[in-house]
Amino acid sequence: MEQYYKRDISCGNCNHSYSTLKVKSRYIRPLTHDTDFCSTYHSEETNPLLYYVSVCPHCGYAVTDEFSNKFTAESLQAIRTKIQKHWQFKDFGQTRTVKTAINAYKLGIYSGIIKKETAIVMAGLYLRLAWIYRTVEKNTTQEQRFLKLAVEQFEISYSTGDFEEKEMSEIKLLYFIGDLHTRLENERQAFRYFQLVIQHKTKEKEKRLVEKARERWYEIRTATKLQATS
């Protein structure tokens, strides 16, 4: 248990306090990084992705650190009617299996939809769940399913600007959208978004990311030309 620490949380829905485990930062040692910033880890025990979502054992309302603390009367009523009413006490605050973590994510996604969390928050949930399916479960079908949901939310975030409330630059958001479209084999959309990164007015501030986008843009352009001549 030494690789974990307990975080105490007060549930925004039912006001009960509970604790959940997180992986201590010194134990988080990524082995590899993908182009969409997905990391692989040495073991399930030190994989922080499995502990990203916190679940209240008393009412079932699940959150991430990105969730807003603000509730409307409508959202509270929806949570209590659609989640809490059907919930039986279950403790997600112990060490997690991959299956338990996936269930926590799905509760987080359902909670976020009911509460009407912002698109950038929902995109983060969908993307991290896709990463689990990629790196741990090796389930390409489910990975693609959640990548598609993630990119849809990222695009909504770009159009509404809600990403500005989080630690996400416009260039990074555009890069994410381009990369995920590449993984979904939507080359035309990917090309467009990478081009937006390359031409962005603040590109000098994030040169490394712009260079990555330029490399991906060039790969797509080259592949398209080869297809056209074959």
Rank of each mutant, 00 (worst) to 15 (best):
E2K: 11
Q3I: 15
Y4A: 07
Y5K: 12
D8Q: 15
S10L: 14
S10Y: 11
N13E: 12
N13L: 10
H16M: 15
S17D: 14
V23Q: 06
K24R: 07
K24C: 08
S25G: 08
R26C: 07
R29V: 13
P30F: 07
P30R: 08
D34K: 13
D34I: 06
D36R: 08
C38L: 08
T40K: 03
Y41K: 06
E44S: 00
E45K: 15
Y51R: 05
Y52E: 03
S54Q: 08
S54D: 10
V55M: 00
G60F: 00
A62V: 02
T64Q: 02
D65A: 04
D65C: 06
D65W: 03
S68A: 02
N69I: 01
K70V: 13
K70G: 14
F71C: 05
T72E: 13
A73Y: 15
L76I: 12
A78S: 09
T81Q: 11
I83K: 00
Q84S: 14
K85T: 07
K90A: 03
K90E: 02
G93K: 07
Q94M: 09
R96I: 03
V98R: 15
A101K: 01
I102D: 02
A104L: 00
A104R: 00
Y105A: 02
G108M: 00
I109A: 01
Y110T: 12
Y110D: 15
G112C: 01
I113C: 10
K115F: 04
K116E: 14
K116S: 11
E117H: 03
L125Y: 00
I132W: 02
Y133N: 03
R134M: 05
E137T: 02
E137R: 07
K138R: 12
K138M: 09
K138N: 12
K138L: 07
Q144H: 12
R145L: 07
K148D: 14
K148M: 13
K148E: 14
K148I: 08
V151K: 04
E152S: 11
Q153E: 08
F154Y: 15
E155S: 10
E155K: 04
E155R: 05
S159A: 12
T160N: 11
T160H: 09
T160A: 07
G161V: 05
F163E: 09
E167D: 13
M168R: 13
L173V: 06
Y175R: 10
Y175M: 15
I177N: 04
G178V: 09
D179S: 15
T182A: 04
E187F: 04
E187P: 04
R188S: 14
Q189D: 08
F191R: 13
Q195W: 11
Q195H: 14
H200V: 12
H200M: 08
K201I: 11
K203C: 13
K205P: 09
R208M: 15
L209F: 08
L209W: 09
E211L: 10
E215P: 14
W217C: 05
I220N: 02
R221M: 10
R221E: 09
K225S: 08
L226G: 09
L226K: 11
S230C: 08
